[in-house]
């Protein structure tokens, strides 16, 4: 079976688990620092999700080893919590310096029927931060929303595959 691996990173274990549960329906392995869920497409193809919580003090998470096989990353923070944004910022900047992979940064909101800005501005392609980073709003405990976020990540991968399958230099 061919497996695609995606890392879900959040400042809170609740958010990262909500996202994985929204996609995978259940979580196979779970603790404070990491969780793991599977999404089977068919008998030959599946996705594995590694949910990772970040703490401001926790700076050594073996990124080098897990990162190399990741197709992409979803980074979630609470749009209404400034501390949450501050906690993901250095991680995002660190990733930008060390990895060429697609990242979808999600500003989690409690109610996607009333997002901070009209959906038309971010819905289809997210907001461009850099060639490998897109930003979008989402409600990660809502399965439909979580799938849209993941679809955005897959679209970024498809874009790269169109160009010989590799990430371009910035």
């Amino acid at each position: 079976m061919k497996i695609g691996e995606i890392a879900i990173i959040s400042h809170s274990s609740r958010q990262r688990d909500n996202f994985i549960r929204s996609i995978c329906r259940k979580i196979d392995l779970e603790n404070e620092l990491v969780s793991f869920g599977r999404f089977e497409i068919n008998d030959q193809l599946g996705l594995h999700f590694y949910g990772i919580s970040i703490d401001k003090q926790d700076s050594d998470l073996s990124w080098d080893l897990i990162s190399r096989k990741m197709l992409g990353y979803v980074v979630i923070f609470d749009w209404e919590d400034l501390i949450s944004l501050e906690s993901v910022k250095p991680i995002v900047n660190g990733f930008a310096e060390t990895l060429r992979a697609p990242f979808v940064i999600v500003g989690n909101v409690p109610d996607m029927s009333k997002p901070p800005i009209p959906k038309i501005f971010f819905q289809d392609k997210g907001i461009h931060l850099s060639p490998n980073f897109r930003f979008t709003f989402g409600q990660v405990d809502q399965p439909e929303c979580a799938r849209k976020i993941l679809t955005l990540l897959i679209d970024m991968l498809l874009d790269r595959v169109e160009h010989n399958g590799f990430f371009q230099h910035k």
């Binding site: 061919k2 695609g4 999404f39 497409i41 068919n42 193809l45 996705l47 080098d64 990162s67 190399r68 096989k69 990741m70 197709l71 992409g72 310096e97 060390t98 990895l99 060429r100 992979a101 799938r147 993941l150 679809t151 897959i154 679209d155 991968l157 498809l158 790269r160 595959v161 169109e162 399958g165 590799f166 990430f167």
Partner: peptide, 22 residues
């Protein structure tokens, strides 16, 4: 200074994933 993650799934596989998510 950067590591490039390989897209090891083919276009077809990615489209299948996208289809499964929709």
């Amino acid at each position: 200074g950067k590591y490039t993650n390989t897209v090891y799934l083919s276009k077809i596989e990615l489209l299948m994933i996208k289809e499964a998510l929709s």
